[in-house]
C-alpha cells in the first residue's frame, strides 16, 4: 500500500468516526441523516480504490440525496464554556500555535527530506501535530474526533463538493464541452486581428475555467483550439509567454466560479460567512483586473 493510500484510509476512518460519534449524539436533530452521510463518504474515501466504480457512483447518489433532502444538521459537540476556554487559553498562551504551525512546517520538511508528494507530507505532519496537541492539552483522542466532527458538520455537504465537481469535469470532457467552446469562440473571432485573437484566447481560458472549475482542465482544450492555431501559429506569438499567461488567465476564471468550490465555497463555510458566494462576489472585480493585466502583458511581451 502506498503512502497516499494509507492517508486515504486514515482520513476515511476518521470520517467514519465522525459518523459513529454523530450516532451517539442524542441532541443531534438530524442524527441519522448526518451519520449516514459521513459514514458513506468515509467508506468511499477509505476504500474507494478497492470498491467497484459503480458502487462509488451509487454512494455519490446517496450522498447527494441525503444533502438535498436536508438530512444534515448540527449537533452537540460538548463545547467548553467561554470562561473555561479563555482560562485554558491563559494557561497555554502562544504554545497553542505550536501544533498549528507544525502542520505547514512538517509538510515542508517531510516533503523536502523524503521527496514524497506534499499530500503524504501533509498527512504525516497532521498526525504528528495531532499527537503533540493531545499531549500538550491533555485531551483524549475522542475529543479530537469530536472536534473534527464539529468542523465537518459546520462545513456540511460543501466539504465534498470539490470532489463531486472533479468527477463532473470528466463527463464534461467526454461530452466534448471544450471542443464546442473552442469552436464557438474561434468561429466569431476575426482571425486577422491579433488583438482579437489574444482576447479570445485569454477570455476563452477564463470562461472555460469557470465552467470546469479548474484551469488545468481548460488549458489543453482552449490552447489546442484557440491559443496554438490563432495566437502562436498564425500571429507568431512566443509560445512560452502565450502559454504561461494563458494559464494565468484561466486562474482568473477560477476566482469567479462556484465550480472551484475548494477555493471559493468551502472557505466560505470554514470562515462562517453568512453568504456562501461572498468570496466569489468580492473576487470578481480583482479577477477582471488581473485578466485585463494578463491580456495586456501577452500583447506587450509575446509579439
Amino acid at each position: 500500500m502506498s503512502g497516499i493510500d494509507i492517508l486515504y484510509l486514515i482520513t476515511g476512518l476518521a470520517t467514519m468516526a465522525f459518523a459513529v460519534l454523530t450516532l451517539t449524539d442524542r441532541d443531534h436533530p438530524r442524527r441519522l441523516g448526518t451519520s449516514a452521510f459521513w459514514m458513506i463518504f468515509g467508506i468511499s474515501l477509505a476504500f474507494g480504490g478497492w470498491l467497484p466504480d459503480a458502487v462509488v457512483g451509487l454512494a455519490m447518489l446517496a450522498l447527494a440525496l441525503l444533502a438535498a433532502a436536508g438530512q444534515l444538521g448540527l449537533g452537540n459537540y460538548g463545547q467548553l464554556s467561554d470562561t473555561v476556554r479563555k482560562a485554558r487559553m491563559q494557561r497555554f498562551g502562544s504554545r497553542l500555535f505550536i501544533p498549528a504551525l507544525l502542520i505547514p512546517a512538517g509538510t515542508f520538511i517531510y516533503t523536502l527530506t523524503t521527496g514524497q508528494s506534499a499530500l503524504v507530507g501533509l498527512g504525516v505532519a497532521t498526525l504528528l501535530a495531532f499527537a503533540v496537541a493531545l499531549l500538550m492539552l491533555r485531551e483524549r483522542p475522542t475529543t479530537g474526533l469530536q472536534e473534527g466532527r464539529r468542523l465537518a458538520d459546520s462545513i456540511g455537504w460543501a466539504a465534498i463538493l470539490p470532489q463531486f465537481l472533479a468527477a463532473l469535469g470528466l463527463l464534461f470532457d467526454q461530452a466534448g464541452v471544450g471542443q464546442t467552446i473552442a469552436e464557438l469562440v474561434s468561429s466569431v473571432v476575426p482571425d486577422t486581428s491579433l488583438v482579437a485573437c489574444v482576447i479570445a484566447y485569454c477570455l476563452g481560458m477564463a470562461i472555460f475555467t469557470m465552467l470546469m472549475g479548474n484551469g488545468f482542465a481548460a488549458f489543453a482544450v482552449i490552447t489546442s483550439g484557440i491559443g496554438y492555431p490563432l495566437v502562436i501559429a498564425l500571429h507568431g506569438g512566443n509560445p512560452a509567454i502565450v502559454g504561461v499567461l494563458g494559464m494565468l488567465s484561466g486562474y482568473c476564471g477560477t476566482l469567479m466560479t462556484p465550480m472551484a468550490a475548494n477555493f471559493n465555497i468551502v472557505p466560505a463555510a470554514l470562515l462562517e460567512l453568512d453568504d456562501r458566494y461572498h468570496i466569489i462576489r468580492t473576487q470578481i472585480v480583482p479577477a477582471l483586473v488581473m485578466l485585463t493585466a494578463n491580456i495586456s502583458l501577452m500583447l506587450l511581451l509575446a509579439f
Binding site: 492517508l7 470520517t15 480504490g49 457512483g57 479530537g144 472536534e147 468527477a167
Partner: peptide, 25 residues
C-alpha cells in the same frame, strides 16, 4: 465514470484530516 473520477480525485478531500487538530486547538 462518476465513481471512478470520484475515487481518482480523493486528494481534494484530504483537508478533512486536519480538522481534528484545528478543532482541538
Amino acid at each position: 465514470a462518476l465513481g471512478h473520477a470520484f475515487t481518482q480525485n480523493r486528494a481534494v478531500s484530504l483537508f478533512i484530516i486536519t480538522l481534528p487538530v484545528i478543532g482541538l486547538l
